[in-house]
Simulated assay, not measured.
Amino acid sequence: MADTMRALLAHNAGDPKDLRIEEAPIPTPEAGEVLIRITAAAVNRSDALSCRGILPGPFPRILGRDFAGVVVAGSTELEGVRVWGSGGRDLGLAMNGSHAEYMVAPVSGVTPIPDRLSDIEAGASGLAYFTAAEAIARAGGMRPGKTCIVTGAAGGVGGAVAALAHWQGMRVVGVVKSDAESERLRRSHFSEVVPADAPNFVTLLADAAEEAVLAVDVVGGSMIAAILPALAVGGGLCILGAPAANPLAAVDTLHFYRQELRLVGLHTGRLTSTDSARVLASLADGFASGALVGAPIFATYPLDSAQQAYHDVESGVAGRPVLVPAGTLP
């Protein structure tokens, strides 16, 4: 093995278009760590926010939270095994991440890739499924036969929430920006799809939800006021995001307390790669059965095209941009 690798190194906070590929030492795993040859790594919106310094973290560092690859050192049990995972407050945020040819990670922060997933699918899916599963748990957990609401239903996290809930026997109501996105989703895991731009959106959502027991909201802001009336007594809502321009929401507190509702936030940047690996490992049966599939992929990019991948994720493309640092897959 060579001593150096190619890596996307951010020296300080700035525009992703200024990122450059550099030669860097291949890291040496310490006790409790493994060295991974990265075969695929998504570029998530949080990576772009990290690059710009909006999400805090030290510089210089290699960005990238999601990863798939092969263990090449650090654990005799795992050597040669395809693994995947995603960083929380560690990989890509507080320490070097996956947008490089090699990366070190805690042994506890990786789990074997399900046989049905390709490296590219796994590299695109870790953060989406980790976030979705954690959000569902915080909102109250799976309730087979009951209804789950998910906003941002056309996105990676929204799709993962829907897939998980459907796998566990829940009825899923998706919220999308407009009717243009609705038809495609009606052919997937969704029982109902409600466009947020409909004039009577709040009423439509409440009727479709049939007193949902849980909701996952990736939009935030005024969307919260539309979701809470659609929840059953004791229902829970987990919020994953907020619009920068107007993050405030008006909540009917009388209705909220009389219905004994629950409202909780989730910021995966406060969790760890170990948390992610635990969650992803718990979903292995879903992937093995085919009930769960990889997150949508927009395109794949060689490491030299990382700037374009970052540009695409900030442009709001449908699906994950995925870097292929090694150039070819094993």
Results as ranks from 00 to 15, higher is better:
Leu8Asp: 03
Asn12Ile: 00
Asn12Phe: 07
Ala13His: 12
Pro16Met: 08
Pro16Ala: 07
Pro16Leu: 08
Pro16Cys: 07
Lys17Cys: 07
Asp18Val: 08
Asp18Trp: 00
Asp18Gly: 14
Leu19Asn: 05
Arg20Thr: 13
Arg20Val: 11
Ile21Gly: 10
Ile21Met: 07
Ile21Ser: 10
Glu23Thr: 15
Ala24Phe: 12
Pro25Phe: 10
Pro25Tyr: 09
Ile26Ala: 08
Pro27Ser: 10
Thr28Asn: 11
Thr28Ser: 14
Pro29Arg: 10
Glu30Asn: 13
Glu30Thr: 13
Glu30Trp: 12
Glu30Tyr: 12
Glu30Asp: 08
Gly32Val: 09
Gly32Arg: 04
Val34Tyr: 07
Val34Phe: 08
Ile36Arg: 02
Ile36Asp: 02
Arg37Glu: 14
Arg37Trp: 01
Arg37Asn: 08
Ile38Asp: 05
Ile38Thr: 12
Thr39Ile: 00
Ala41Pro: 03
Ala41His: 00
Ala42Arg: 06
Ala42Glu: 00
Arg45Glu: 12
Asp47Lys: 11
Ala48Tyr: 12
Ser50His: 09
Ser50Lys: 10
Cys51Trp: 08
Cys51Tyr: 09
Gly53Asn: 12
Ile54Val: 14
Pro56Leu: 06
Gly57His: 12
Pro58Thr: 05
Pro58Ser: 06
Phe59Arg: 00
Pro60Met: 05
Arg61His: 13
Arg61Ile: 04
Ile62His: 06
Ile62Gly: 11
Gly64Phe: 01
Asp66Arg: 05
Asp66Ala: 08
Phe67Ala: 15
Ala68Pro: 01
Ala68Met: 01
Gly69Thr: 05
Val70Asn: 02
Ala73Thr: 02
Gly74Lys: 01
Ser75His: 06
Ser75Leu: 05
Glu77Asn: 12
Glu79Asp: 01
Gly80Thr: 03
Val81Arg: 15
Arg82Glu: 12
Val83Gln: 00
Gly87His: 00
Gly87Val: 01
Gly88Cys: 08
Gly88Gln: 02
Gly88Glu: 04
Asp90His: 02
Asp90Leu: 03
Asp90Cys: 08
Gly92Cys: 08
Gly92Trp: 01
Leu93Gly: 06
Ala94Gln: 11
Ala94Thr: 10
Met95Ile: 13
Asn96Trp: 03
Asn96Lys: 00
Gly97Glu: 02
Gly97Met: 06
His99Cys: 11
Glu101Ser: 10
Tyr102Asp: 05
Tyr102Ile: 04
Tyr102Thr: 02
Tyr102Met: 04
